[in-house]
Every structure is written in C-alpha cells, then in structure tokens.
C-alpha cells in the first residue's frame, strides 16, 4: 500500500469517527429508532467516489467497529453492521450501473441503510410490526441521502486535485 493511501485511510476513518460522535450529540426530534442524519455516510460516499468501492467498504466496516466499541453498546453493533453492509452493497451496485449521479446513489444508500436495520430489528425481537416504521425511515433516508449526496459532490469538487494526484 502506498503511504499516501494509508494516510488517506487514516484521515477518512478519523473523520467518519468524529462525525459519528458529533451525530450522537445531536438530539433527533423524531421518536423513531433509526432516524439519523447519517453524517458518517458522507465520508463513505466521498471515499466511494474518490478512492473506490473496496476502500469505502473497509472504511465503513472499520468505522462501525470503532464507533460500536466506543460510543455505543456493542450489542447494537449488529444493527449498524446490517445497515452499513446493505447500504454499501446497494451503493456499489448502483454506482456501477451508472443510472444515477452521486445524489441518487447516496439516496439509495440512505434508504437501504434503514431497510437493513429494520430487517435485523424485526428478527431481533421477532416483531413484524416494526415494519410500520419503514415509511418514516424512508423519509429520513431520502432527506439525508439527498443532502449527503449534494454535500459529497461539493467536497469531491474541492478535493478533485488531491484525488487525481493520488491515482
């Protein structure tokens, strides 16, 4: 691995880690489990387009493990992992298909993150009624996915030279 790549990984993981922390400080006015800003997802989207699909995967998993052990109850990590993995998978597929721009891919990522979490939650307590949260979570995924996608576009535009040089 090139030194620059290692540095980039470190930088992005630290950034995602801090975003997760900041996010845990922001109170969410909706009493629906899983409604989040998804700030850390901004880093994953930027990494996916700036570094690559594989790098985004590593970043996402490392972030979830770190955050799970530090800020949250490790037993809730299974929800983050389910959301993170499904979100990464869907974003990777739709990025490859080139149907949508970064905004569309980010929306798909946001919504599939919530769907992944809901599936695990349903299995975890064996309550299919949780599916009633899905419409609320889709609204959340749509709004945060759009914002994250637009932000990621701005970030990548400014970091373009940096990433080009890296490749």
């Amino acid at each position: 691995m090139k030194p620059k790549r290692i540095a980039l990984y470190g930088l992005f993981i630290a950034l995602a880690f801090i975003f997760s922390y900041i996010e845990s400080l922001i109170p969410i006015p909706f009493p629906v489990p899983g409604v989040k800003l998804g700030l850390a997802n901004l880093v994953v989207v930027v990494a996916m387009y700036g570094m690559g699909v594989k790098e985004a995967f590593v970043l996402s998993i490392v972030r979830i493990l770190l955050v799970g052990f530090t800020f949250r109850d490790p037993s809730t990590m299974i929800f983050s992992l389910a959301g993170g993995l499904l979100s990464w998978l869907m974003m990777a597929v739709f990025k490859k298909l080139k149907l949508f721009s970064m905004v569309g891919v980010s929306i798909i990522g946001g919504i599939s993150h919530n769907i992944g979490q809901i599936i695990v939650a349903i299995l975890y307590v064996n309550n299919t009624s949780i599916i009633y949260y899905l419409p609320f979570l889709m609204v959340s995924g749509l709004v945060s996915g759009t914002l994250i996608g637009l932000l990621a576009g701005l970030v990548l535009k400014r970091l373009q030279k940096f990433f080009l040089y890296e490749k």
Binding site: L99, F100, S101, V103, G104, I107, I108, I111, L134, P135, M138, V139, L142, T146
Partner: peptide
C-alpha cells in the same frame, strides 16, 4: 444531478405516500 435522480426521488416519494 441527473434526470434519473429526479425520477428516483419522485418514485420514492410516491412509494412513501402510498405506504402512509
């Protein structure tokens, strides 16, 4: 943003509205 992104957003809003 592409045109497809707008379609995607409209499609998702439609699904959300129907489920509500």
């Amino acid at each position: 943003m592409k045109k497809n992104d707008i379609f995607l957003i409209c499609g998702i809003i439609f699904i959300i509205a129907c489920s509500f």
